[in-house]
Computed example of a mutant assay.
Amino acid sequence: MSNSVKKVPTFVESLATLVGHNSISSVLPQYDQSNLAVIQSLADWFETLGFATEILPVADNPGKANLLATRGTGDGGLVLSGHTDTVPCNPERWISDPFTLTERDGRLYGLGTCDMKGFFSLVLEAVQAFHSSDFKQPLMILATADEESSMCGARDLSRQGRLKGRYAVVGEPTSLRPIRMHKGIIMESVRLTGRAGHSSNPALGINSIDAMHDVIGELKNLRQELAAQYSNAHFTVSVPTLNFGCIHGGDNPNRICGSCELAFDLRALPGMSNDDLRHEIRQRLSPIAARNNVIFELETHFPGIEPFETLASSPLVQAAERLTGHRSEAVAFATEAPFLQALGFETIVMGPGSIDQAHQVDEFLALSQIAPGVELIRSLIQQFCLEEKR
Rank of each mutant, 00 (worst) to 15 (best):
174 T>E: 00
29 P>N: 00
346 E>I: 10
361 V>T: 12
314 S>D: 15
106 G>R: 07
261 E>G: 03
295 I>V: 07
323 L>W: 00
276 D>W: 12
351 G>A: 08
322 R>H: 10
245 G>P: 10
266 L>A: 08
350 M>A: 12
387 E>H: 12
254 N>W: 03
222 L>F: 03
161 G>D: 02
314 S>P: 15
151 M>H: 00
133 S>R: 15
204 L>Y: 10
157 L>T: 04
149 S>K: 02
115 D>A: 14
378 R>G: 09
126 A>G: 12
218 E>K: 04
231 S>W: 07
124 L>K: 12
61 N>I: 11
169 V>W: 05
123 V>D: 03
132 S>M: 01
68 L>H: 07
159 R>N: 12
236 T>A: 02
70 T>Y: 11
167 Y>T: 04
262 L>C: 10
95 I>H: 15
302 F>H: 01
171 G>H: 01
360 Q>C: 12
16 A>M: 14
335 T>V: 05
158 S>F: 01
155 R>I: 02
97 D>I: 06
329 E>W: 06
169 V>G: 10
163 L>K: 00
267 R>C: 02
69 A>P: 04
204 L>S: 13
356 D>W: 06
373 G>T: 04
93 R>G: 08
173 P>N: 02
46 F>P: 09
361 V>C: 11
174 T>C: 05
8 V>A: 14
112 G>E: 03
118 G>Y: 01
94 W>P: 15
75 D>A: 14
